[in-house]
């Protein structure tokens, strides 16, 4: 479950810098350019065309990158 701090972040994938080993695999699979290598870790840019494909989360071996889904049940 995500922390309160993560819930307040803009709606982009979330990076846990303590876990990120800077391998850059997520950067290579990102289709929209939202992920960039910055020093020994990955930075996330706010972009309009992130389609939440979750490929970055899928390839991350350390679990540093997360693409959480809000679970929404509209009132009937």
């Amino acid at each position: 479950m995500l922390s309160k701090e993560m819930n307040r972040l803009p709606i982009m994938p979330v990076i846990d810098h303590a876990r990120c080993d800077g391998c850059g695999l997520c950067v290579t699979v990102c289709k929209c350019g939202a992920l960039v290598l910055s020093g020994n870790t990955v930075a996330i840019l706010e972009v309009d065309d992130c389609g939440w494909c979750t490929d970055c989360e899928l390839v991350c071996a350390t679990g540093a990158l997360q693409c959480p889904f809000e679970i929404v049940a509209p009132e009937v």
Binding site: M1, L2, K4, M6, N7, T54, E57, G63, Q66, C67, P68, F69, E70, I71, V72, A73
Partner: peptide, 20 residues
Amino acid sequence: ILLQNATPGPEGYQRLTQYE
């Protein structure tokens, strides 16, 4: 899991990753 987490809490909707 979706049904159990579909109720919004004080901070909004629950958020879960596919790993979770």
